[in-house]
């Protein structure tokens, strides 16, 4: 089996998982110690795949991004997600799907 084949197989295997990742832009998310409550609240949501990142959540303070992993067999509940962020002390702005390469893909339409 060639190296290219192995890489292709790995990409195929990982594609469904990556497709269930979402990125939330969060105003003011500049300190992960301060954002511990956001991580805690979000990771407790039933649709979060806790096997990825840190209990399903990754905080990137440089660009105020919150990446979440959603379990493949569960539906993303955006109102619950945004409420978890708000009660964590921050203000969610929008939510995006993520490509296999980890880049922002499509803005998820959401009307509160």
């Amino acid at each position: 089996m060639s190296g290219k084949t192995i890489i292709a197989a790995l990409l195929l295997l990982s594609a469904p998982v990556l497709a269930s990742d979402f990125v939330v832009h969060v105003h003011g998310l500049v300190c992960s110690f301060c954002a511990h409550g956001v991580s805690k609240n979000v990771s407790k949501l039933p649709f979060i795949d806790q096997s990825k990142y840190t209990k399903g959540v990754k905080v990137e303070i440089e660009n105020q991004k919150l990446t979440i992993a959603v379990s493949p067999d569960r539906d993303l509940d955006i109102p619950a997600l945004f409420e978890a962020i708000t009660s964590g002390g921050y203000d969610p702005v929008d939510i995006w799907t993520v490509t296999a390469a980890g880049e922002l893909d499509e803005l998820v339409e959401y009307k509160p």
Partner: peptide
């Protein structure tokens, strides 16, 4: 009273 705006809190 918090104000979160972009890269500032």
């Amino acid at each position: 009273r918090y104000k979160n705006q972009g890269a500032t809190t």
